[in-house]
Amino acid sequence: MSVYNDKLTTSQAKEALKHFKIKSAKEIGINLKEGYNGDLTSREAGSIGGNMVKKMVEAYKQNLK
């Protein structure tokens, strides 16, 4: 695999995670804006990350069945 393909894959993965984060935040009622979101509280940021992990675990369990 070439270096170009590795960068393209990494770029696509970053974009997918960004959309996943925005979707997870909306589901729990937190509005993220494009770019810097340093005004979030630690609780809000942790809730977003926790929701993302919860969804990833659920998806993994579904794939095991």
Rank of each mutant, 00 (worst) to 15 (best):
G50K: 05
K26N: 13
E44M: 04
K33L: 07
K55V: 14
Q62V: 14
G38D: 02
M52V: 08
Y4R: 06
A45I: 02
K54D: 13
Y4A: 10
V53C: 08
G46S: 11
K18A: 10
Q62M: 14
K14C: 07
I48Y: 01
G49T: 09
G46N: 13
A25D: 03
K54M: 15
L40Y: 00
L17P: 00
L64K: 12
A59P: 02
L32I: 08
L40T: 02
S2V: 06
N63I: 12
Q12P: 01
N31E: 13
K14I: 09
G38S: 02
Y36K: 12
I22E: 00
A13E: 05
K14D: 06
A59V: 07
K26W: 01
L40P: 01
M1W: 14
K54F: 15
K14T: 08
Y60R: 15
E44Q: 13
L64R: 13
L17D: 12
N51D: 14
Y36C: 09
K14G: 03
K55R: 11
V3G: 02
F20N: 06
V3E: 10
I48E: 01
R43M: 10
G46T: 11
Y60D: 14
M56R: 14
K23N: 09
E15Y: 04
D6M: 13
S11Q: 06
S24W: 00
N63T: 15
N37T: 08
G46Y: 04
L40V: 02
L17T: 06
K7Y: 09
K21E: 14
G29P: 00
A45N: 04
E58W: 07
L40H: 03
G50E: 07
K65L: 13
M1Q: 14
S24V: 03
K65G: 14
Y36W: 09
Y60M: 13
K61L: 15
S47Q: 13
Q12L: 11
L64S: 12
G29R: 00
K54N: 12
D6F: 13
K61T: 10
A25L: 03
Y60T: 15
V57W: 11
R43I: 11
L17G: 07
D39I: 08
E58T: 11
N51Y: 08
G50V: 11
D39V: 02
K7C: 10
A59M: 09
T9A: 09
F20W: 03
Y4G: 01
K23G: 01
E27V: 01
Y36L: 12
T10C: 05
G49L: 15
